[in-house]
Amino acid sequence: MEAKKYMNPYYAGFFLGLLLLATIYITGRGLGASGAVKSATVAAVETVAPSHAENQKFYKEYLNEHAGSPLKNWLVFEVIGVVIGAFLSGLISHRLTFKMEYGPHSTSRIRIVTALIGGALFGFGAQLGRGCTSGAALSGMGVLSTGGIITMFAIFGGAYAFAYFFRKLWI
């Protein structure tokens, strides 16, 4: 069956805004994504190299701030939900396929490398910037946090500034 059309962006935005609002009202915090990656990374390091995790400052600070297992974390549960929700949505709209997407002048090999590098940069940047597009930019805008809004401008401004140099990857 053919994939269904995407939702009108303004409606999607409206629902996303309501979801963010409900999340803030119920839990007092916004949405997020990169925090779950952080929790999973800490959990992995703690399991593979416990003595290393005890000695490195980053893990120590994290484990001090978060009691209990790093995986017992709000964002980890939320991201599990994202996987379920996106999967169900893809199922309903007939978009479940294994495939890779890249620009007409790119190749799958290039795409693998760029996805890995892009992911690493985003993961790193989200640690430094205390949140990603969801946790810092979107949620920060909802509560009008100065830091969140600065991060938002930096992400999108940065992306525009660098876009020209990587145009061959996409168009």
């Binding site: 892009g118 985003f122 940047g125 910037g129 991060t151 930096a154 940065g158 876009a163």
Partner: peptide
């Protein structure tokens, strides 16, 4: 960290084509 972290994320965005949530 907000500015520099954001710029790095922006770079990651155009190279990788996604952000963590998406």
């Amino acid at each position: 960290s907000a500015i520099i972290g954001g710029l790095i994320m922006g770079l990651g965005f155009v190279i990788g084509g996604f952000c963590p949530g998406t």
